[in-house]
Design a protein around this nucleic acid. Structure first.
Lengths: 225, 225
DNA sequence: TGCCGGATTTAGAGACGTCTAACCCTAAAG
DNA sequence: CTTTAGGGTTAGACGTCTCTAAATCCGGCA
C-alpha cells in the first residue's frame, strides 16, 4: 500500500516528465510539491526501494513502468474528478483543481468507474488535458505545442490549458482562451510574451511567457487536398 | 487545523454519545476506531489540550461544544455524501458508508454546499439518519426507539437503520427492512431476537439483538382524536 | 587541470499516530 | 474495609514525513 504522499511524489514526477522529457531533479520535485530538497531525497530513497522510480544519485529520477502506472491512476482520478465537478456540480474550470487534488487519493475504484460512466467515459478534462484510460496504458503524447512555437499571423486551435492557478484560468476564460477556441497569433515579443486574438473575444490578449507556455495548441487544420 | 484522525475520534465520540448518553470510555472509542487503548488515551490528551473534549482521568470523556461542532461537520459531510452517492451515482444504500468514510475529511465547504444544493438540502441520509444542518446546531435527538422496545403485535414505522455493515444492510433490504416501511412485531425472544413482518416482504424476518438495536422506529401514528 | 558554486545527500531532530509492556486506579465483591 | 479484577494510563518504541545544518558531489570556468 502506498501513502497519499508517495502518490503525490509519483504524480509530480510524472507531470514534470511530461514537460521536460528528461531525468527529474530533486529540486524540481521540491519546488513542485513545496517541500525541501532533503525531504525529496529521503522520499526518493523509499520510492526507489519499492522500485517505483529509477534513480542515479545526484542525477535525478525517472519513473519505472510500475511507478508510471501509479501516477496514471492518480492523474486519471484527478482529471475525472475535474470533469465531474464541472459537469455535475456546477464548478467553473478555474475552481476544480484544488478540490480534485484533495479527493484524488481517496476515491475507490468503484467510485472512479461510476464517475467515468456518469460522464460517458470522457477522454479529456475541462482544461483539455487527456484523461488516462482505465487500463492505465501510458497515453501517447498529444501532438500539441506551446503557443509560443508558432509564427506571428498563424491561426491555431487551443487544445489544452495546463495551468492550475484559478486566477490565471479565470483571466484566460474572460479573454476567450479556452480549449477549442481559435487564436490568431499577433505578436511574440523578444522576452517571450505572446499577444493573440481569440475567436471568442473582441480584444487581443497578451500572455507572459510563463502563462503562454501552459497554453498548448494544435496547428490550423490543413485544407484537405 | 485538525488532522483527519482527530476528526475521526471526535466523530466516534459523538456517535457513541448519541447511543449511550453517558461519558464515553477509552475502551469504547478504541473498539469503535479499531485501535488500542493507549492510543486513545494519548489522543484524548491532545483533544483535551485543544478543548475539544472534557475529560476526567479514568472516567471517560464528553465533547465540548466546540468538539461537537467539529463532529457535526464531519457527520454532515458523511451523510450528505451517502445521500449524494445514492441519488446521483447509483450506489446502493449498503455500499455508501465506506466511500463516505474516506471522502468525508477531504471535501471543501464549497463542495459540501454544492452537494447539499444538488440534493435539495435533504435532512436525512439513505439510512434515515438525520443530516446536521449547515449551521451545525446540535440536532434535537429524534424520538425514535429501538425496535426491541415495543410489545409483540405492535405496528411501527422504520425511521432509521443505523448499521454500517454492507452485508447486514443488503440482508435487511432483501427482507423489506428499510426506512419508511411498516413492521409488525411478531415476537421478541428472551435473548433479544426480534421477529417482525415487513409491509414490503412476504416472509417475516428475525433479527438478533445486535442488529435489532440498530433499527430505530417510531410508534404507529396515533389516530387523530 | 583544478577550483568553486550550486545542487544533492547525509545526519540528526521533531511532530504525529500507532503499538506493546508495565504500572496504577476504580469499583464491585466479599 | 479490604481485596482484586479489569480497564486506563504511563513509558518507551517505531514508521512516516518533515525540517535545518553540515558534508559531499557535479559541472562549468579559469
Amino acid at each position: 500500500m502506498l501513502s497519499d504522499v508517495m502518490e503525490d511524489y509519483l504524480k509530480a514526477i510524472y507531470q514534470l516528465q511530461r514537460e521536460t522529457d528528461d531525468r527529474i531533479k530533486t529540486s524540481e520535485i521540491a519546488a513542485e510539491l513545496d517541500v525541501t530538497s532533503p525531504t525529496v531525497t529521503s522520499m526518493l530513497d523509499k520510492l526507489e526501494e519499492r522500485e517505483l522510480v529509477d534513480r542515479e544519485k545526484y542525477r535525478g529520477v525517472t519513473l519505472t513502468d510500475e511507478g508510471e502506472t501509479v501516477a496514471l491512476e492518480i492523474v486519471r482520478h484527478h482529471r475525472l474528478l475535474e470533469a465531474y465537478l464541472t459537469e455535475h456540480l456546477d464548478y467553473d474550470w478555474s475552481e476544480v483543481h484544488a478540490e480534485a487534488d484533495r479527493l484524488e487519493h481517496h476515491i475507490s475504484e468503484d467510485f472512479e468507474a461510476r464517475v467515468a460512466a456518469a460522464l460517458g467515459e470522457p477522454d479529456v478534462d475541462p482544461h483539455g488535458s487527456p484523461i488516462p484510460s482505465a487500463d492505465l496504458e501510458p497515453p501517447t503524447r498529444p501532438d500539441g505545442e506551446s503557443i509560443a512555437e508558432f509564427e506571428e499571423g498563424t491561426v491555431v486551435t487551443v487544445a489544452e490549458v495546463a495551468d492550475h492557478d484559478p486566477a490565471v484560468l479565470s483571466y484566460l476564460a474572460e479573454h476567450g482562451v479556452e480549449p477549442g477556441v481559435e487564436l490568431e497569433i499577433i505578436e511574440i515579443a523578444p522576452f517571450g510574451m505572446v499577444t493573440a486574438r481569440s475567436s471568442e473575444a473582441d480584444d487581443p490578449v497578451s500572455l507572459p511567457e510563463s502563462v503562454a507556455s501552459h497554453v498548448w495548441v494544435v496547428p490550423p487544420a490543413e485544407p484537405e487536398p
